[in-house]
Simulated assay, not measured.
Amino acid sequence: MKDISRNDLLTKIQEVEFACLDLNLYLDTHPKDQKALMDFNMLAEEACRLRKIYEMKYGPLTNFGFSLAKYPFNWINDPWPWEYQ
């Protein structure tokens, strides 16, 4: 995963988070679907892993205590995660 570009890593994070959201909506109406729950948990762990890789390389993806910050505080550094192309 260390050879992946910043943009490709952000895209992968978005894909995995979208799959989590989709499964979350499905589980809202099918709470006893054990396979879907297992898939959701696997993807949630993958999303955490990918966000951790991104944040270690490029800085926080979110603010207000959802991501740890390094010294000096780098949340204000450009580009912001949603501005990177």
Rank of each mutant, 00 (worst) to 15 (best):
L23N: 04
N24D: 10
N24S: 09
L25V: 07
Y26L: 00
Y26G: 00
L27F: 00
L27N: 02
L27C: 06
L27G: 05
D28L: 05
D28F: 02
D28M: 06
T29F: 06
T29P: 04
T29I: 07
H30G: 04
H30Y: 01
H30C: 01
P31V: 04
K32R: 03
K32L: 14
Q34R: 06
Q34V: 04
Q34H: 04
Q34N: 05
Q34F: 07
K35S: 03
K35H: 02
K35G: 04
A36F: 04
A36C: 07
A36E: 04
L37R: 09
L37A: 08
L37M: 08
M38S: 13
M38H: 09
M38N: 12
D39C: 02
D39R: 06
D39T: 03
F40D: 07
F40K: 05
F40M: 06
M42A: 11
L43Q: 07
L43E: 01
L43R: 10
A44Y: 12
A44I: 01
E45H: 08
E45T: 11
E45Y: 07
E46R: 14
E46I: 07
A47M: 03
A47Y: 07
C48N: 10
C48K: 09
C48W: 07
R49S: 12
L50A: 06
L50M: 05
L50V: 04
R51G: 06
R51C: 12
K52S: 11
K52C: 09
I53D: 04
I53Q: 12
I53P: 02
I53V: 14
Y54E: 10
Y54K: 08
E55V: 14
E55N: 05
E55Y: 02
M56G: 11
M56L: 13
M56W: 04
M56A: 15
K57N: 14
Y58A: 12
Y58L: 14
Y58F: 15
G59I: 06
G59T: 01
G59N: 08
G59F: 11
G59E: 11
G59S: 06
G59H: 09
P60G: 11
P60M: 10
P60K: 08
P60D: 11
L61G: 09
L61Q: 05
L61S: 08
L61D: 01
T62I: 07
T62A: 13
N63P: 00
F64D: 14
G65P: 03
G65W: 08
G65I: 12
G65F: 11
G65E: 08
G65T: 08
G65N: 08
F66C: 15
F66L: 15
F66A: 13
S67A: 13
S67Q: 08
L68K: 14
L68R: 14
A69I: 15
A69N: 14
K70Y: 13
K70D: 15
Y71H: 10
Y71S: 10
Y71L: 13
P72W: 03
P72V: 05
P72Q: 00
P72I: 00
P72M: 03
W75V: 10
W75L: 14
W75I: 11
W75K: 11
